[in-house]
Amino acid sequence: MDVIAPPATGVRHHWAGLPALVRSAVEDILGARVVEARSQSGGFSPGVAARVRLADGRRAFVKAVSAETNPSSPDLHRAEARHTAALPPGTPAPRLLGSYDDGTLVALVLQDIDGRQPRIPWEPAELDRVLAAVGELGTALTPAPFDAPAAAVRKARMFTGWRTLPAEGDTSRLDPWAARNLGLLAELESGWEEPAAGDSLAHSDLRADNILLTDERVVFVDWPHALRAAPWFDLLTMLPCVAAQGGPDPETVFTTHPLGRDADPAGVTAVLAALTGYFVASSLKPAPPGLPTLRAFQRAQGAAALRWLRGRLGHRAP
Rank of each mutant, 00 (worst) to 15 (best):
V3C: 14
A5W: 11
A5H: 13
P7T: 10
R12M: 10
R12T: 13
W15D: 06
W15Y: 15
L18N: 06
P19L: 15
A20C: 10
A20D: 15
R23H: 10
R23N: 11
A25D: 07
A25P: 02
L30N: 01
L30A: 04
R33T: 12
V35I: 15
S39T: 15
G42T: 14
G43M: 08
S45Q: 11
A49N: 15
A50P: 02
A50I: 05
R53V: 09
R53S: 07
A55H: 01
F61C: 08
V65T: 09
A67F: 13
A67K: 15
P71I: 05
P74G: 11
H77M: 14
A79F: 02
A86Y: 00
L87V: 08
L87Q: 06
T91D: 08
P92V: 03
R95F: 06
Y100I: 07
T104R: 15
A107G: 04
L110A: 08
D114M: 02
L127V: 13
L131Q: 02
T139H: 12
T139W: 06
T142Q: 11
T142A: 12
A150G: 13
A152I: 00
K155G: 02
R157A: 15
M158V: 08
G161W: 00
W162E: 00
L165C: 09
P166A: 11
A167K: 13
D170L: 05
S172D: 15
R173C: 09
R173N: 07
W177L: 01
W177V: 01
A179N: 12
G183K: 05
L184W: 03
L185A: 06
L185T: 09
S190H: 03
S190P: 01
G191L: 03
W192M: 01
E193V: 03
E194L: 03
P195G: 04
A196N: 04
A202W: 05
S204P: 01
D209L: 02
I211A: 10
T214R: 03
E216D: 15
F220I: 00
V221A: 02
A229H: 11
L236F: 05
V242E: 11
G246I: 09
E251W: 01
T252F: 03
T252P: 01
T255C: 08
L259E: 03
L259H: 07
G260T: 10
A263K: 06
V268K: 05
A270G: 00
A270I: 00
L272H: 12
A273F: 06
A273P: 11
A274E: 04
L275A: 09
T276G: 00
A281K: 10
S282R: 14
K285N: 09
P289Y: 00
P289F: 00
L294D: 13
A296T: 07
Q298W: 03
R299V: 02
A300I: 11
A300P: 02
A305D: 08
R307V: 04
A317Y: 02
P318W: 10
